[in-house]
């Protein structure tokens, strides 16, 4: 490397510059190639899934139950299950994440060890493999909380000590927590210091300032975080593998202690454990298409809101 540098420096005005030019072109070309490759893979995935899934993709497909041992019919229960999952997840994760972000931006002092520990924990949560959340959900929510609640309140009758939609949603909430915290924190930081000072100088307390100035100013940030979390939660499968997702259910879940079907899990099951993988191929692609539309469109919305917040902050 050093050699190349010396060469090009030493012969700056000489004809050797052209070799450096060629090297430069190759190098820049390589970086371009990487970008093009990544983007084209992305579009190939999209194109293949849209192309293969389009034949089956219809309103009927979305709104009907699977039939005939899941080799025909639609994905309605999986879609509904996914919706319930992300709703319960959001109810748990959004307040939790927002408050943690509030702590980090408003209450934590700069050199606080505690705040540093919270930050580190949040970042760790973001990199823990999703399957670990599944294990935690099984070990903590189901075996510990659920089974404990059954022993204490149900007289040992099994109700909460088994996989269900509540435990799956809470597990997913833990997984998506960092997404929300990061988004809300970013939004809170864009609120100018002058506004906080204006409020405090008028004799408002810290909490009044947060309630009346800071939180209203970060609504769009909370929304971005929620949307991103929902997008993530709708697509993750590993955490719910053994905390509540079911292979097939003839009815929609009626309570939080029921199991549920899920789009991502449906894709996984259909493509690996279906009795006739070949025959159900269109169903699989269409299900994947629905899942992809759901997660990508949510993401696009979040990116748009976020770029608006950033522009406003400037």
């Amino acid at each position: 490397m050093d050699k190349v540098l010396n060469e090009s420096e030493g012969h700056f005005f000489s004809s050797r510059k052209s070799t450096s030019d060629i090297k430069g072109k190759i190098f820049v070309g390589l970086t371009q190639l990487a970008v093009i490759l990544i983007i084209s893979i992305l579009f190939i995935i999209l194109a293949v899934i849209v192309y293969q899934g389009r034949s089956k993709f219809s309103w009927e497909f979305i709104s009907s139950f699977p039939t005939n041992g899941m080799t025909e019919g639609g994905i309605f229960p999986a879609l509904i299950g996914t919706f319930i999952l992300v709703i319960v997840m959001s109810i748990a994760a959004v307040p939790f994440g927002t408050i943690t972000a509030l702590y980090l931006t408003e209450y934590a002092s700069e050199n606080s060890k505690f705040a540093a520990a919270v930050r580190f924990s949040v970042r760790t949560l973001a990199v823990v493999p999703s399957i670990i959340f599944g294990l935690f959900g099984l070990g903590f929510f189901i075996q510990f909380l659920g089974a404990g609640a059954d022993t204490a309140f149900n007289g040992g009758e099994l109700r909460w000590g088994q996989p269900n939609i509540l435990w799956a949603s809470l597990t997913m909430a833990l997984l998506t927590l960092p997404v929300i915290i990061v988004s809300v924190e970013e939004a809170l930081k864009t609120i100018p210091r002058e506004l906080r000072e204006a409020s405090l100088a008028l004799g408002a307390t810290k909490w009044q300032t947060i309630k009346k100035v800071v939180l209203p100013g970060s609504v769009s940030g909370i929304m971005t975080g929620t949307i991103l979390a929902v997008s993530r939660g709708a697509g993750e499968v590993a955490p719910i593998l053994f905390t509540g997702a079911a292979y097939y259910l003839a009815t929609l879940p009626g309570s939080l202690s029921d199991q549920f079907m899920n789009l991502g899990y449906h894709v996984y099951i259909m493509s690996t454990q279906s009795s006739d993988v070949e025959k159900t191929m269109p169903i699989q692609f269409a299900t994947t298409l629905v899942l992809l539309i759901l997660t990508l469109s949510l993401n696009v919305v979040a990116v748009i809101i976020r770029s608006r917040i950033r522009r406003k902050a400037k």
């Binding site: 002058e194 506004l195 409020s199 008028l202 004799g203 408002a204 009346k212 100035v213």
Partner: peptide, 27 residues
């Protein structure tokens, strides 16, 4: 509350004129 402050950069809240003035009394 007894010692008010006006800042170098004007910093109205992103609210209506009325709400800006009413902010102090309200809190």
């Amino acid at each position: 509350k007894k010692i008010g402050m006006v800042f170098q950069k004007s910093n109205p809240f992103p609210k209506s004129i009325y709400e800006n003035i009413a902010y102090g009394p309200r809190i």
